[in-house]
Write a protein that binds this DNA or RNA. Structure first.
Lengths: 159, 159
DNA sequence: CTTAGAACGTTGCACGCGCATCTACACAGC
DNA sequence: GCTGTGTAGATGCGCGTGCAACGTTCTAAG
């Protein structure tokens, strides 16, 4: 607990932490390139793309605000503003929920689906170039196994 | 190229993209927990921690602003502001570069090293709990191999 | 029916970031 | 020497985000 700086620091440069930092770098770099591509080719931020995609995949192309926020890893307020922008651009609409007057659906419009279809190839190409094509089939499988171990766990916080 | 929405969308939900999105989620979730822990226990944002760590690992605990910006994946302006804050808190100092009057070093102060030493265990514990402990030794090795494939590549943009 | 508490979404505020721009300096070439 | 091009950092500005607080609505207890 009460280590001097010199003592406790040894472990900081361990392989372990290097691995985590590499993961961080990889994810950030891929996301940066992806966002830049989407912005240049379709004037669509990555976060917006992901919202449209989630809505597209949802039944009836609609999702509760709360659900959506969880899926795109955004705070509720952050999603409110993002949906504001998407609605202003006509890509999404808000619709009241009949069974729960508090609830609101974000619904993908036809224009939104079209925009998503436009941007999809760019996104797909970026993910392949930056990520999928770098690894062989075996590695992708192992990657899936590891990510499955990582993900449910991070949602199940102890205590 | 000119696919209808229905056509081009099939591939969007492919395993491939799911994998990328899982990677994204994993990284973001881990970083969120890490940042929350550092903030609660040491009032230190993750980005600040990473700057201090980079400086600590650098020869003479100093780095050029430009170098540092690359290492922490921040824009130059972003780093300028961040160093402003760290300097205000006495964790870092700016020092002129004798060989290049344009250059500035960011130098870790003793207070900065102490703060880093305080926060280190929290960081380490978080990374272990969220990431390292979830995988076995074999997987960690494979992870390292994959990340090595991913990382240099994302820095070597074609065209 | 009334009331306490929780849940859903929105809004005020401050913060942190990136882009474009600016200044200062370095390193050519003349 | 001077001038033009490139680089290192800093600054003005706008944008996007999270936190805390708020209004509204649902649910449960009395």
């Amino acid at each position: 607990m009460t280590l001097t700086a010199g003592e406790s620091m040894e472990s900081f440069s361990s392989e372990e932490l290097t691995l985590w930092r590499m993961l961080q770098r990889a994810q950030v770099r891929i996301a940066q390139v992806l966002e830049a591509d989407l912005l240049v080719e379709h004037d669509l931020p990555l976060a917006s793309y992901e919202v449209l995609l989630q809505l597209f995949e949802a039944p009836e192309r609609r999702l509760r605000m709360n659900d959506l926020a969880d899926r795109v890893l955004l705070s509720r307020s952050g999603l409110t503003r993002l949906i504001d922008r998407l609605q202003r651009d006509g890509l999404v609409e808000r619709e009241a929920c009949t069974s729960d007057a508090r609830g609101l659906f974000a619904v993908l419009t036809d224009a939104g689906a079209a925009r998503l279809a436009e941007a999809g190839p760019t996104y797909l190409r970026g993910v392949r170039a930056q990520f999928l094509d770098m690894l062989d089939a075996d590695e992708l499988r192992q990657c899936a196994v590891m990510l499955n171990k990582l993900l449910p766990a991070s949602g199940t916080e102890p205590c």
